[in-house]
Structures are given as structure tokens and as C-alpha cells.
């Protein structure tokens, strides 16, 4: 049963304390039978070389920590099977964000955009004693929206976000914007649309659909963005 196997990696390395510039490191690691996911392999690699730095937490695809570029495609290390990857497995940081160290990127711009859409429910009626009612059908409108884990796989795979990370909200932020627009309990629809009525914030999405392709939760930001655009049009006529 215990068949050990060796896996080859090419990993982006950069330590600002000692490297003038980034480089790709060729390294291999022997995996145990129980090492199924890429994250298991990276943890195994780190045991061998503790200078390798990456974020990780839940190891089950719900916290969004370990997003990285894997063989050219963004994904979560904890949900990616080593078996399915061509070797050498090429690991790079998420594209388009400043690299702090190795595959750890500075996500400030990503969260700034998320915060810019006012990601919280707005309801100015006095709070009732019990829950606000919402029909199961209305609640279902939030499916495919609320599950976002803010891993940034989508926004950092989007050319529009690469070019204008300060102006274009990006797929993750827009998915969140639609999550509140679609919520029957929210009362800020027109303010939310005003906030996005801009040549860059929403309309830089050209439906390239990289976001859909990479989302580890199977969500569809492009569709949500389309629905926001529909709401803009309906409001204009």
C-alpha cells in the first residue's frame, strides 16, 4: 500500500530580505501515500525547506487562503489533486498583485475593491423582534453568490483587473455587489447601482470569463455581472 512517489516542482521564489529578484526553483519532494492534494505536497516541501512561504489554513476549500497559480491556472492548493497535475508542477503567486514573498501576494487592492461595493446589508427599517421574512424562492437567488471565499482566484485571472486594479471592481467584488442587490432584504439598490455606474468599476468586464473558469467554488461572477448590467439598463429605461 505505501507507495512513495517523487514529485517535481518549479516554484517561484522571492525573499526581499536576500534576493535581488525572483527566480524559479527546481525542487522535488517525496510524497507519502496520504499526500493527495497539492497543499499536502507543499507542506511536505516546507518540512524539507522551511524558507518556503505560503498561506494556508482550513485545507478544505472554505477559507480561501491558499490560492496560487498552478501550472498556469489559478486555484486552491488544498482542492487540487497532485495526480492531475503535469510535472514539473509550476507554482507561481497569483498574477497581477504585488508579491511580498514567494507565493504570498499583497491583497490590499483586492480587498479595497471588495470593500468599495459596501459589502453589507442595508436595511433602514427599525429591526423587528424576530427575523425578517424571506421566501425560499427569494433566498435561492443568493445561491451561487454568498458562497464566495474571497480567495481572489477570479480577480487575479481577469485581464481587466490586471490593467485597472484600482478602478475596476473585479469579479469577486462585483459578485458580492450582486449578492446584496439580489437580497430582498436590502434597500440600497439604487445607491449600489450608482456606485457602479462608471466606465471602469463595472463596465470594464468584457465577459472574458476567466473568472468562471478558475473559481474553485464553481461560482459564476460573469453571470452576476450580466445581471447587474441588466439592472442598470432596466433602471435607465
Amino acid at each position: 500500500m505505501s507507495s512513495k512517489r517523487t514529485v517535481q516542482f518549479k516554484i517561484y521564489r522571492y525573499n526581499p530580505d536576500k534576493d535581488d529578484k525572483p527566480y524559479m526553483q527546481d525542487i522535488s519532494v517525496e510524497l507519502e501515500e496520504s499526500d493527495k492534494k497539492l497543499l499536502d505536497a507543499l507542506v511536505r516541501l516546507k518540512a524539507k525547506d522551511d524558507t518556503l512561504s505560503f498561506r494556508r489554513s482550513c485545507r478544505e476549500g472554505v477559507c480561501g487562503s491558499d490560492a496560487m497559480n498552478i501550472n498556469g491556472k489559478n486555484g486552491l492548493a488544498c482542492l487540487t489533486s497532485v495526480e492531475e497535475l503535469a510535472q514539473p508542477i509550476t507554482i507561481r503567486p497569483l498574477p497581477g498583485l504585488p508579491v511580498i514573498r514567494d507565493v504570498i501576494v499583497d491583497m490590499t487592492q483586492f480587498f479595497k475593491q471588495y470593500h468599495s461595493i459596501k459589502p453589507y446589508l442595508v436595511n433602514n427599517d427599525p429591526a423587528p423582534e424576530r427575523e425578517r421574512l424571506q421566501s425560499p424562492e427569494d433566498r435561492e437567488e443568493l445561491n451561487g453568490l454568498y458562497e464566495c471565499i474571497l480567495c481572489a482566484c477570479c480577480s487575479t485571472s481577469c485581464p481587466s483587473f490586471w490593467w485597472n486594479p484600482d478602478k475596476f471592481v473585479g469579479p469577486a467584488g462585483l459578485l458580492a455587489a450582486y449578492r446584496f442587490l439580489a437580497d430582498t432584504r436590502d434597500q440600497a439598490t439604487s445607491e449600489r447601482l450608482d456606485n457602479l455606474e462608471d466606465p471602469y468599476r463595472l463596465f470594464r468586464c468584457h465577459s472574458i470569463m476567466n473568472c468562471v473558469d478558475v473559481c474553485p467554488k464553481g461560482l459564476n461572477p460573469t453571470k452576476a455581472i450580466g445581471k447587474i448590467k441588466d439592472m442598470m439598463v432596466r433602471r435607465a429605461v
Binding site: A127, E131, R132, L133, Q134, S135, P136, D138, Y146, D183
Partner: peptide, 19 residues
């Protein structure tokens, strides 16, 4: 729990719209 619902938490719903 009701407070959380007011904060926007997307609880599943019963047929009559409750949590």
C-alpha cells in the same frame, strides 16, 4: 441569531419565510 439575520446572514428558509 435574529440579530445575525438582520445583519444579512443568508439563512435557509421555511416555506413561510422563517429561518
Amino acid at each position: 441569531v435574529v440579530e445575525l439575520e438582520h445583519y444579512g446572514m443568508p439563512f435557509d428558509r421555511t416555506d413561510n419565510g422563517k429561518i
